[in-house]
Simulated scan of single mutants.
Amino acid sequence: MHIGNRLVIVKKLRTYIVMGLCLVAMSSFAQNLPPNQPKYDKKPVHFGFLLGVNYYDFHIQTIEDLSTVPGYYSVRSETAPGYTIGIIANLRLTDYLDLRFIPAFAATERTLIFDVIEPISEKRTEVTRDIQSSFIDFPFELKWKSQRINNYRLYVLGGAKYSYDVSSNEHVEDDRVFKIPHNDFSYEFGFGVDIYFEFFKFSPQIKGSWGFADLIVDDGTFYIKGINRLETRGIFLNFTFE
């Protein structure tokens, strides 16, 4: 094994050991704290809000043989961080299961980079197309919760989401614009921890999103000829206050 790889593994092991010791210490400390809001989870319905950072990207499936499109070599994507704000409506189903509806607004920007022979200059270059999206999200999700340990409770999430992109250029007649449709659908999964404070519950969480709708708009332009299917991918760091 390369020495550099060994150093990386050692550093990661150190990080995991420190994190484990911190979790053990936190759990031991939590056992001795008086519980905040002990009857909070017995409420049939409660509300809150969400703030988050999103990283939307594309999953690109090119056509099987790009050589059939003269001057088209590859396409890739880049992403930039965006933000998400939403409102939480939580319905208690059982002691360990909730149904949640979280309508939200998410703003993001993605870039497609095409390695092609540019039709006008006839030179090989990288052509970029920036795609700005402003999503109105309508996700439904199930939240499976662990047993509460004093002021902490772990959970996992799973659900489906419909998104409407109000910034979509689907019907714009401009060959310089890469178009994606207004409507998108995706599955979402994540995990997090509920932290109970005296007057509210704070929950950091990480979620992943896998779109299953094809986002290709067949407008006849050169840049879509090498793409067979285009889907949304995303990862979100959210903070909820309930």
Rank of each mutant, 00 (worst) to 15 (best):
E173M: 13
N169P: 06
Y196G: 05
V193P: 01
F189K: 05
G192T: 07
E173R: 13
Y164T: 00
G159L: 10
F178H: 00
N183H: 15
D165P: 05
I180Q: 01
S167G: 10
S167F: 12
N169Y: 12
R176G: 07
S186E: 01
Y187S: 01
S168L: 10
A160I: 15
P181R: 08
S167C: 10
S167I: 02
E170Q: 14
S168T: 14
G190R: 07
H171W: 00
F185S: 00
H171P: 01
E188L: 13
N169G: 10
V156F: 13
D194G: 00
A160H: 07
F189I: 13
D174I: 04
L157D: 07
V177A: 07
Y164F: 15
K179R: 15
F178E: 05
D174Q: 06
I195H: 00
G159K: 04
V166E: 11
V156A: 13
S168D: 05
E188W: 00
H182F: 06
A160T: 14
N183G: 02
A160R: 04
Y187L: 15
P181S: 10
D184S: 11
D194H: 13
S186C: 04
Y162T: 10
F189G: 08
N183D: 15
S167R: 12
V156E: 03
F189P: 03
P181C: 04
D175R: 12
Y187Q: 03
R176M: 09
D174E: 03
P181M: 11
P181A: 01
Y187T: 06
F191C: 09
V166G: 11
E170T: 04
F191H: 06
